[in-house]
Simulated assay, not measured.
Amino acid sequence: MSRTVLISGGNRGIGLAVARAFAADGDKVAVTHRGGGAPDGLFGVECDVTDEESVKRAVAEVEAQFGAVEVLVANAGITRDGLLPMMSEEDFGAVLDTNVMGAFRLAKHATGGMLRKRWGRLVFMSSVMGTLGSPGQTNYAASKSGLTGLARSLAWELGARKITSNVVTPGLIETDMIEHVTDARRAELIGNTPLRRTGTAAEVAEVVRFLASDAASFVTGAVVPVSGGIGMGH
């Protein structure tokens, strides 16, 4: 059956690949954006995940268009890199506000319909850097690590209503998010990846689609790496 799927930051990169995968399955897909609109074939809602009222309005708009959200993919995220001595509290806080608080706000307002239906899927997009850490990314790594605690707590809170909550941790994926990575750093990361290559957004999307499916009905509180093996065992 066609489900209502909401993907934050689903207008580009990994989020767009996830949106396309769900749409190909016949789901009713909505993506959030910051004013740039949605790609053709997808329903777009303007949303600032750092503003609770904006999130609340966006969820209400999706529900009015498609019905209650049944699958939420909290994908929106930012980076503001810098070494610790030069990193401002503003840059540290902004990344946590978007990456962690944004995911919290979306889950808070999107799970109402799931609770009424007694069924739902939450997928939080983290990163292997949340466990490995990365120089110049104390804020980003802290935010991505925080998503695990959020998702696992929600797994406990919502599990009795048949709502699962899981985390996907991509490695080095070819999107515009890694355009700033230097050649030396890219070579280092690939050298630490057993498959010796970068991944694609489509490969991440396939794992998200699985976690949102009935095939993953007994999977919750999991942290699933899509990383080519970098950081295995964490």
Rank of each mutant, 00 (worst) to 15 (best):
73 V>R: 08
232 M>C: 13
34 R>M: 10
1 M>D: 13
105 R>N: 12
194 P>A: 10
88 S>K: 07
112 G>V: 12
192 N>H: 14
43 F>Y: 14
94 A>I: 08
40 D>F: 06
53 E>H: 12
184 A>G: 09
106 L>K: 08
163 I>L: 03
232 M>Y: 14
110 A>M: 08
2 S>Y: 13
162 K>L: 15
36 G>F: 02
175 T>L: 05
105 R>Q: 12
153 S>Y: 11
68 A>F: 09
234 H>M: 15
225 P>L: 11
122 L>C: 00
32 T>W: 03
72 L>H: 00
96 L>N: 06
185 R>Q: 15
91 D>I: 12
203 E>S: 10
159 G>W: 00
114 M>Q: 02
11 N>P: 07
22 F>C: 07
178 I>L: 06
63 E>Y: 12
8 S>P: 06
232 M>K: 08
146 G>P: 04
106 L>M: 15
210 F>G: 01
39 P>K: 10
146 G>L: 06
29 V>D: 03
48 D>K: 08
40 D>K: 11
83 L>C: 09
157 E>R: 00
116 R>N: 14
73 V>I: 15
82 G>W: 13
142 A>W: 09
145 S>T: 12
69 V>T: 01
164 T>M: 03
95 V>W: 08
13 G>T: 01
69 V>K: 00
32 T>H: 00
65 Q>D: 03
150 L>D: 05
24 A>D: 14
229 G>E: 09
135 P>E: 13
215 A>Y: 13
1 M>P: 12
226 V>R: 00
183 D>T: 13
89 E>M: 14
199 G>W: 09
98 T>E: 03
101 M>A: 14
214 D>K: 09
12 R>T: 01
179 E>L: 14
119 W>M: 01
105 R>S: 11
131 T>Y: 11
230 I>R: 08
66 F>A: 07
143 S>W: 07
85 P>H: 04
17 A>Y: 01
68 A>Q: 10
25 D>V: 11
52 E>C: 12
212 A>L: 03
159 G>R: 00
38 A>I: 04
23 A>Q: 13
101 M>D: 10
13 G>C: 02
38 A>N: 00
125 M>A: 05
14 I>W: 00
1 M>E: 14
209 R>N: 08
50 T>H: 12
149 G>V: 01
139 N>Q: 02
207 V>G: 10
185 R>Y: 14
36 G>H: 01
84 L>C: 11
70 E>P: 04
111 T>P: 06
88 S>E: 01
172 L>M: 14
61 E>K: 14
141 A>V: 05
177 M>V: 05
39 P>Q: 12
33 H>K: 09
190 I>E: 07
32 T>F: 02
18 V>R: 04
134 S>K: 13
166 N>C: 04
228 G>P: 06
136 G>K: 09
144 K>W: 11
201 A>Q: 07
16 L>T: 02
146 G>C: 03
107 A>W: 00
125 M>T: 01
104 F>C: 10
199 G>H: 08
135 P>D: 13
230 I>H: 09
191 G>Q: 06
91 D>N: 15
83 L>T: 14
94 A>N: 13
43 F>Q: 10
5 V>A: 09
149 G>R: 06
226 V>A: 02
142 A>F: 10
7 I>K: 05
162 K>Q: 15
68 A>G: 08
